[in-house]
Design a protein around this nucleic acid. Structure first.
Length: 468
RNA sequence: GGCCCGUUCGUCUAGUGGUUAGGACUCCAGGUUUUCAUCCUGGCAACAGGAGUUCGAUUCUCCUACGGGCUACCA
């Protein structure tokens, strides 16, 4: 395939959501897989609803996901002249006509079951048109759909044939002269030299309309591919109604971009293998539109969560650190890089999101302020604990170079001396060092924290517990 | 109303004219572990329904049902 050009074309009337991200991803993967280009176009012809803040938000989300677009962003609002001229061409060529029917009348006939425009103005002669025009009546411009069939081959849907009488003489220019969606899309996709239009299934009926415009304008049509919808638990198209968060929320919730992308790519696409965990580069290498099916897929946060954990477990510490710093730049301030990597190494197997990670890592950087009450009660309820903890502390204190083996050996020795199980010591020590009852191997933890910190925290706990 | 699409465990999916219909998530039960998590083992759980073609249909055809998308001077 000669390097394709694709585009993601959101309208800035809301933040980027899962469906949009998935469409962007599939476009991106297709482009990169074939060494093509991925463009971003902002469809802001609806001036009422479009907001700059949404444009910013969408761009930021795409960047966070790692779906960097090529070249400059194209804004439709800057291209009014191009649309005007195309509309004039259609009008002049007899492929479009002015319509003076009022909105009210049309809405009424629709309510009565006339779903299509009755073509009232299609056959107005020149005199009638100028009469309407002279009286200052507002008008829209509609395309004139000829008899016949509209056919194309969809990469995902296969051959699509639509009888032209199913296609309305739809409006291409509003009464204020501005182009409607279908009009602007065709002009831009042609101008941008887009080779493949990859978008949601909700656009499938727009495609036959747009092909009519391509034909009327004498343009070659791109190849189309329509992606299945992402569904909510009720099988309806996923939306805010389902409480589906925007992409920004996934970032705030501590998901890694690759994990989210990985989840998204598995919705409707199968990699032709049992592999389920992919990083972006692997997705690019393996992605194939032909392996996308038509069935909508229900969004399942549990699986996303699992995939997130898988990424967390197997990703390099460097990558995870970047993810953490993206959410909380101050994480681990004052500690050296190697120390931070060690913390990540110890914690990554038990965290499924960056957020959980940060929630569990504080004690590596700060002495605990609080001790979980339940754990205190269970593991440090009486004075006898102080005895052997103190003994253990002194043993540790006497050792020159602490490492995992020697810490474990000493602890088990103390347990033996007192004729208690190792757990009786491990749990209160863990509590003293971290304030919480769970976490990585105590011995590894101690080695990383270092002797000084361990002793300090043990002393603090020895003074505090048991609570009388 | 019309046009289009879909239907395999609860969810994401594999699969074949003859299979014990496979995997993953979830859930449950064990095991490993100082704890939590991980990890390992096992378990529950599906071909929407009806006709037809066929020696044989989950697989091919048709119909029905159900679900979805579109049907704006929104995109």
């Amino acid at each position: 395939m000669i390097s394709p050009k694709v585009r993601f074309a959101p309208s800035p009337t809301g933040e980027l959501h899962l469906g949009g991200a998935r469409t962007a991803l599939f476009n991106y993967l297709f482009a990169k897989h074939h060494n093509g280009q991925f463009f971003l176009r902002v469809e802001d012809t609806d001036r009422e609803r479009s907001k700059d803040e949404f444009t910013d938000q969408i761009c930021e989300s795409l960047k966070w996901l790692g779906l960097q677009w090529d070249g400059e962003i194209l804004f439709q609002s800057n291209r009014i002249n191009e649309y005007q001229s195309a509309i004039q061409t259609l009008l002049a060529g007899g492929n479009a006509y002015r319509c003076f029917c009022s909105k009210d009348v049309l809405e009424k006939s629709r309510a009565e079951g006339m779903y299509q425009y009755p073509k009232t103005c299609r056959y107005l002669d020149a005199d009638e048109i100028s009469k309407h025009l002279n009286s200052g009546e507002s008008n829209v411009i509609r395309i004139l759909i000829p008899e016949g069939q509209t056919s194309y081959h969809d990469i995902i849907y296969g051959p699509v044939n639509v009888n032209n009488n199913e296609i309305d003489d739809f409006i291409i220019a509003r009464s204020d002269g501005s182009p409607t969606y279908n009009m602007a899309v065709v002009v831009d996709d042609h101008a941008m030299d887009i080779t493949h239009v990859i978008r949601g299934e909700d656009h499938i009926s727009n495609t036959s309309k747009q092909i009519q415009i391509y034909k009327a304008l004498g343009f070659d049509t791109p190849v189309f591919a329509h992606l299945p919808m992402i569904l909510g638990p009720d099988k309806k198209r996923l939306s805010k109604r389902h409480g589906a968060p925007g992409i920004q929320q996934f970032k705030d919730d501590g998901y890694l971009p690759d994990a989210l992308l990985n989840y998204l790519v598995m919705l409707g696409w199968n990699p032709d293998s049992e592999q389920e965990i992919f990083v972006l580069d692997e997705m690019i290498a393996k992605f194939d539109l032909a392996q996308v099916h038509k069935k909508g897929a229900v969004y399942d946060e549990k699986k996303l969560y699992w995939i997130s954990g898988q990424h967390m477990h197997r990703l390099g510490n460097k990558y995870i650190l970047e993810g953490i710093l993206a959410v909380k730049p101050s994480w681990g301030n004052g500690f050296d890089l190697q120390y931070k990597y060690s913390v990540i190494e110890l914690l990554k197997v038990r965290a499924k999101s960056i957020l959980e990670f940060m929630n569990q890592s504080d004690y590596f950087f700060n002495d605990p302020e609080k001790y979980e009450p339940k754990s205190v009660e269970k593991n440090w309820s009486d004075n006898s604990v102080n005895n052997f903890i103190n003994t253990f502390k002194n043993k540790i204190d006497a050792i020159e170079n602490l490492d995992v083996e020697i810490i474990e050996k000493e602890l088990r020795n103390v347990a033996e001396t007192y004729e208690i199980s190792a757990g009786k010591i491990i749990h209160p020590v863990r509590l003293a060092l971290s304030g919480i009852p769970n976490g990585p191997s105590l011995f590894s933890m101690m080695e990383l924290l270092g002797k000084e910190t361990c002793i300090r925290r043990l002393n603090k706990a020895l003074n505090m517990f048991p609570k009388s």
